[in-house]
Write a protein that binds this DNA or RNA. Sequence first.
DNA 1: TCAAAGGCTGACGCACCGTCAAGGTCAAGC
DNA 2: GCTTGACCTTGACGGTGCGTCAGCCTTTGA
Lengths: 249, 249
Amino acid sequence: MAMPHNAGVLTIKRLAEYVGVTVRAVRHYHQTGLLPEPERDHSGYRRYPAQAVVDLIRIRTLTEAGVPLTRVHELIRATPEQFATAIEEIDQGLTRQIEELRQRKLGVAALQAGDRMFLPAEITGYLDQLRALGVSERGVRFERDGWILLAASYPDQALGWIAQKREQLADPDFREFYVTYDQAHDWDPADPRLHELADVMAARLRQESAQTIHEVVSADEQSLLGAHVQDYSPAWIRLAELVRQRTTS
Amino acid sequence: MAMPHNAGVLTIKRLAEYVGVTVRAVRHYHQTGLLPEPERDHSGYRRYPAQAVVDLIRIRTLTEAGVPLTRVHELIRATPEQFATAIEEIDQGLTRQIEELRQRKLGVAALQAGDRMFLPAEITGYLDQLRALGVSERGVRFERDGWILLAASYPDQALGWIAQKREQLADPDFREFYVTYDQAHDWDPADPRLHELADVMAARLRQESAQTIHEVVSADEQSLLGAHVQDYSPAWIRLAELVRQRTTS
DNA sequence: TCAAAGGCTGACGCACCGTCAAGGTCAAGC
DNA sequence: GCTTGACCTTGACGGTGCGTCAGCCTTTGA
């Protein structure tokens, strides 16, 4: 037999369970006017008609798709055309979210691999190059921190500077100088080799002056970037002194 | 030259922008102890070292993956093994979320197709069958609402009942009776054909009594389900009366 | 008949910040 | 030297989407 339209037989719990939302959520939707309040039975209980199931499933489908309730509210009163275009937008949004989640999966996986992956590839590549040359882990970490700070402070130029650096590393003389400088960290500050090294450094500084970091980064900031060297190496402090003597004279 | 480790040159804005979070978020992380407060400069501004960039990227990566801040807090102090297993869990969670989003895309797409798709396939199939028989849209809607209410009230049995109904529809006599009943909705309540129809209905009811809906659904609920017929059809009211005469006598 | 289950209306809580408010500080240009 | 606008500080309220508790009433099933 045909079962006729009905004014309301479902209790709030049956409705909620069947649709797959909580009772609290249904009441919340009533409070905000999203779902119309149904008639009450003689003891004040809400009694829902079949239409409420249909309405609630629409709401659930949209909210599960991440549509805010205020938007759902609008959509419910929208024309079919508005609704259709909105649905398309939402669908595109979901596609985008799926893509984002894939990216985040990659990001999370990178956390396992240490901190290599979440720095720009240019920086990590440069750091790998240093490691390959035999630069100490300490040295590599100094470089890493320095480049992080530079990249954060000068996002537009930092990648260019690091490209320059990598070009310099193509020069065998520079590579040798670089490794020596790294080792000097642990030398005695009185070590005579520091004078030799200071000569090389001073010469390089004179050559290099054009079109490099030094143009852009203010002296103040350079000193900030270079601060706390003394926490680590008396030899480097001595070296800096020797270089200063050579460049100011 | 090696750029040494540095106590802090980044302002909060540079840090936040480089990492891709808001300044407000960084301060929030400080408040909750998630990110250590850096040293302040002479005017009380926060000045961040490179390590803060690394820490903040870890936090961002995790929160973007949907990990709650409290959990991030735990993970930061966890052992590497705990961290690794947690990461695996998170990764699985992401995979699950991606699958859910795919499902939601299907659900949203179904909204465009009207209300067919988000009812159980058994019900929509049955409704389609009725349409194919020539049952009026009004009749189909009555059925839909009735079955929705039944399915919500008796989730375990409703699918069985509808299977029975579909078997009945295989009987050509039943089909004819059914279509006639549907049409009777618009008849004059004095139409003599109602008597004929009442005979058929009464006979069917006697036959059907075993093992059907009527066993389970209480009389009260049946009357609720059948309520408000009078809103729609005087002929159906008259018909119900005639059937009652035949079944109670 | 009596406990368990379900219903009702508030009201607070929470996660993760957004967004003022009400200032103090810094860098640059005049 | 002074102003202007960008940036920094703390503090506090707001908002979304309910979860959860309290305190009370009603229905249902054994």
